[in-house]
Design a protein around this nucleic acid. Sequence first.
DNA 1: CATCAGGGCCCTG
DNA 2: CAGGGCCCTGAT
Length: 319
Amino acid sequence: MILDRSYGLELQPSAPFHFDGTFHKPSHFPSGDIAWQPGTLWTTRRIANDLLGLKLENTGTVDSPCVRLTIFASHSLSAGEMAAVGDEVASDYDLYADLSSFDDLLGRDELMRPVLGRWRGMRTMGGPLYESLVICVVLQNATVRRSVQMLDNLFRAYGDLLHFDGQALYGFWPPQALDAAPEEALRALKVGYRAKSLKRISGQFARGECDDSALRCLPNDELKRALLKIYGVGPATVWYLMFEVFHRNDAFDHISPWEQKIYSRLLFDQELVPAEQVLTEVERRWGRWKMLAAHYLFEDLFWRRTHAPVPWLEELIRL
DNA sequence: CATCAGGGCCCTG
DNA sequence: CAGGGCCCTGAT
């Protein structure tokens, strides 16, 4: 599908804002709907029944931020539709967050001061709930390479390849597509038992039983309860969604074993510290900002790794 | 060649 | 609340 019309829009994130820290997460696995180079992000969005290409460019600085959003479409867009896309982008990347007390807190923390120096203004990278759920499901009980393969297979079978601005990126399928697909067809894409979760999740979205914007208004405990009701969502997935998708910056009550090892190194300079102790420590240090602070530390480590391998970390990343 | 665990979760007892 | 089963894949 060729998206040959483009529409420009300016977004003004709250200051400070870190463009590359927000729009590229080296700890995430690469997916066919995103491309990044310093200062520019390309991605896609399915909004209602529209497939759109998005380009975000850094046209400001950390302390005087400005982002140019270009929307690519196959047909003309109204001013209202453009504004809706702008709002969704701002919400997905938490562009209007007030991080002033977070910055104060990190600035007083010996360990975090240099990290803050590198990433001041970084936000979390969320996305539509349905698409995030699909990512979570392919992450479950799988190594990185397999997750990449499963998502790629799904994109090739059910996604739409969108051509815009010299890029070719996949747009997600509508939930109805997987709802209607036979489970066997999904299993043929090597997703295994996850086929059942994908179908049931897609069914819930197709019938309108899940609503991103309604969920966004809920307090933490109710949101968590609502998410756990979705089939295939357990402790690991709910943790990911609470933080990355719903920007609950204190959502740190679960650690997977490999992350436990990473935080053991970063916080205690030890190979393995009990999970409980890690959770107590992040609460003590960062309180209501504990997950966002941990995210800064985590992404900082993965950025360092892109410049030079971190030997102890390489062993923990199972490809 | 076989066995096993991996960035979980559901279901059963 | 504990533990078995689940798909596939690469490591051993």
